[in-house]
């Protein structure tokens, strides 16, 4: 009796383990790794919703090659080992011919390594650190413009409009923040601006006033910050409290572009420009419909992370339709030739 019950339990667990592998004929099941719990869950959730919106639209128009798209989300918890587990599972157990998704750079790197070794194309959706595609990976593609572009966009604006002489750069301690700040410092120096303070902070810090009072004493023309949402809001709020007046507060994409920023920073967020990759007002085809739909469903405008996810699925659709067959090699060829305009942009 006892042995029997153990067998039952084991069988149950095994069936749970394998249940993902059953594939019906007329559906195309795609699994996406995303951080749905932990500190990055916010972005994971936003991307998840955006994928769902895209999938619904695609299905309404007949799916990919006549097959209905069924999405399945795997929680990577923002841990590289787990992202890798998921990638191995997708390649090996589910035989998925193409992988896309995940949020943080470290997770994307873990997946990229596996995908390249196993010769399965991987589309990096939001891992923004630059070195990921500069590694001669043959099977890794990205749709997210490298981090350096954030800085370039702003620089051209600064050159033409503000003409500052001095700049202060603050960035968060992550690979995204570090590489963003490095690029900005490089460009600023090229333009003849003097970098007065170049400093990083621990993500999630409560009090920025010590560092800000130092910034205030330096009297810069421009303050450039590479931060995520709430750090950005706190920074702006405390800048206002300290009455720092620079000509311009510039944000490097990530946090300053999120819709919450405006709500949370309250009246502090005036005179702020950001280099963002995308906003609901851009004129790419489909951008507005997507933003409205998202807003209607979740009472909130998405940021570019969502738009990227939304577009990623369209890219995958496009690639799969052009690929000669559903095997990884053909998909890679098709992906390499990809050039399309989505709601996110070209």
């Amino acid at each position: 009796m006892r042995r029997f019950s153990i067998i039952v339990v084991v069988a149950f667990l095994l069936s749970l383990f394998c249940s993902g592998t059953l594939l019906a004929q007329d559906t195309l099941k795609l699994s996406i790794p995303l951080p749905l719990t932990g500190t990055q869950a916010k972005f994971g959730e936003m991307e998840k919703r955006s994928y769902e919106i895209a999938a619904e639209e695609i299905n309404a128009k007949g799916g990919i090659k006549g097959k209905k798209v069924v999405l399945d989300f795997e929680d990577s918890q923002g841990k590289p080992e787990i992202s890798r587990s998921i990638a191995e599972k997708l390649i090996d157990v589910k035989k998925q011919p193409v992988i896309f998704g995940d949020y943080s750079s470290s997770c994307s790197k873990a997946i990229a390594a596996v995908a390249d070794e196993r010769k399965v194309p991987y589309l990096v959706v939001t891992g923004a650190a630059d070195d990921i595609t500069q590694q001669n990976y043959k099977y890794v593609f990205r749709m997210n413009p490298p981090n350096a572009l954030y800085a370039i966009g702003l620089i051209s604006f600064l050159k033409e409009v503000v003409k500052p002489k001095t700049i202060v750069i603050l960035y968060e301690s992550s690979d995204f923040g570090t590489s963003g700040a490095k690029d900005m410092a490089m460009h600023a120096e090229k333009m003849g601006m003097k970098v007065l303070v170049y400093e990083k902070y621990e993500k999630g810090a409560v009090d920025f006033k010590p560092i800000l009072s130092k910034v205030k004493a330096a009297k810069p023309d421009v303050i450039y910050m590479v931060s995520y949402v709430m750090d950005a809001a706190l920074l702006m709020r405390q800048i206002k409290e300290l009455r720092i007046d620079s000509k311009l507060f510039a944000g490097g994409a990530a946090g300053f572009a999120l819709p919450e920023f405006v709500v949370n920073a309250k009246d502090a967020s005036e005179y702020v420009v950001t280099a963002t990759l995308w906003s609901p007002q851009v004129k790419y085809k489909g951008a507005k419909e997507y933003a409205d739909k998202y807003k209607k469903l979740f009472k909130d405008y998405p940021s570019y992370h969502g738009a990227e996810a939304y577009s990623a699925l369209y890219i995958i659709k496009d690639v799969l339709e052009r690929a000669k067959s559903l095997n990884p090699e053909d998909i890679r060829v098709a992906m390499k030739a990809t050039k399309m305009e989505t709601a996110f942009g070209p």
Partner: peptide, 18 residues
């Protein structure tokens, strides 16, 4: 940062075995 690569981490591209 100079010693450990800081937050960018260390990426080893050629892993020994597949």
């Amino acid at each position: 940062v100079d010693f450990t690569g800081g937050d960018l981490g260390i990426l080893i591209q050629e892993r020994t075995w597949v």
